[in-house]
Amino acid sequence: MNKIKSSTLLKTLSYIFLFLGLIIILIPFYLTIITAFKSSQESSLNFFAFPHSLYWDNFLGVFKKANYFMYFKNSAIITVTSVCFILLFIPMCAYGIARNMKEKYYNFIYVYLLAGIFVPFQVIMVPLVKYLSKLGMTNIPGLIIMHITLASSQGVFLLVNYIRTIPRDMEEAAAIDGCTTFKAYYKIVVPLMKPMLATILVMNALWVWNDFQMPLLILNQSPDIWTLPLFQFNFKSQYTYDYNMAFASYLIAMVPVMIVYASAQKYIVSGLTQGAVKS
């Protein structure tokens, strides 16, 4: 009897705790949405109240004063291109390493690539700017190349360990039947790697889309090539007086990711957590 009581008590406490958490997580979203739909007079009357009517001028202001669609396009191009190349190059490299671990070259490049995991971005941040500008690469292609480069350590690590759990039998059988190495990789190994490729896709797509430090260093000098996070950062410093419009800009910037999260939640949660477990 006592035990049952204490277990219901624990359950009730859990619910109270979780609801509290829910409120803490949701309040910033609630305030962002209502403030984005209010005029500044209405907000100054009561910051927390629900808007009387939907006030769209903030959004119009954001679209008019800043070229939101251009920043969206820049972010989209950078994310899609980076992720495509990440999914092309890194699995190939990991496959080569995983199947030839005993050879000196592959063993060396495995350790060589893994070493990058321990280097925080801030270590290369400063020389990177000088180096890229010397190469004339402080532009969108330069940023894409840096994303591919910085994704390689973790990607190779995750994929090499995954490929080693896939038996070689099928590739060997295919090779005896006259299948080329590339075809065996493409037709047999890639389909078997799909779960891990999904993890890599999710992790890197979110990282590239949300990245701030690298665009700040590489792209900040010319507004035409800003990404969405850069746009938000700069927009805020330009329009500090109009915070309703600022909130509208945060809301618009969140919408794409939220749509993706709502439609592929399962993959995103498992992708992000698996990536964290194994790095």
Binding site: F89, I90, C93, G96, Y106, G116, I124, P127, V156
Partner: peptide, 23 residues
């Protein structure tokens, strides 16, 4: 297999390792 590893190794060397050494 060697060609498979090349793009990643070249990018990593040119834009990560060399950047660090420049630093």
């Amino acid at each position: 297999m060697f060609l498979f590893t090349l793009p990643t190794v070249v990018l990593y060397t040119t834009f990560f390792i060399i950047t660090m050494m420049v630093g």
